[in-house]
């Protein structure tokens, strides 16, 4: 009978110990929530089945967002057009700098690696609306009437 009591006691003690351990686990989570600003983000990601580190799980797009809405670009997108034109110019300046370095070093110039100028016929084949900085400032609208095209998604 004593042996049985000891065994029962052991089981009870282990249950109590288990409960204490659960309290410790819960406290560890509470502690991290309070002390670590990012912990809730991490925990939220984990609860979505993701261990994504450092930033929140991408929020699902709003209903219907899978089919892109009618094009709703900002009415005045001049700033973005200018900024992008500046990025393009930055690249062109790099090309010029590299070409100058090659000339200075007596190497063959860059013609083989320079994109050919765009022609009107080619433009018709591959329509683009890439404005120059000047055009972007002066005309903040597409060069041709907008035409919506099917588009796909690609990734790698």
């Amino acid at each position: 009978m004593d042996a049985k009591a000891a065994k029962d006691s052991s089981l009870v003690e282990r249950w109590i110990e288990d409960q204490r351990e659960w309290q410790k686990t819960a406290m560890a989570y509470m502690d991290s929530m309070v002390k670590n600003d990012d912990f809730l983000v991490h925990l939220g990601n984990a609860m979505r089945g993701s261990l994504l580190a450092g930033k929140p799980y991408p929020t699902a797009p709003a209903a219907g967002a899978a089919a892109p809405p009618a094009q709703d670009a900002p009415a005045d997108d001049r700033l973005d057009r200018v900024l992008f034109a500046l990025h393009e110019m930055q690249g062109q300046l790099t090309d010029l700098r590299l070409t100058l370095e090659e000339l200075r070093n007596g190497k063959k110039g860059p013609p083989p690696t320079m994109p050919a100028p765009r022609t009107a016929s080619a433009k018709a084949r591959a329509p683009r609306a890439k404005p120059s900085a000047k055009a972007a400032v002066g005309k903040a609208r597409p060069r041709r009437p907008a035409r919506s095209g099917k588009a796909g998604k690609a990734r790698g």
């Binding site: 967002a65 892109p68 683009r128 597409p142 907008a146 035409r147 588009a151």
Partner: peptide
């Protein structure tokens, strides 16, 4: 899907890419 416009493009949100 209706698709993206070439002439009047948008920045496609990360959540949509993920979807």
């Amino acid at each position: 899907l209706e698709g993206e416009s070439y002439e009047n493009p948008r920045l496609v949100p990360a959540a949509e890419v993920k979807s």
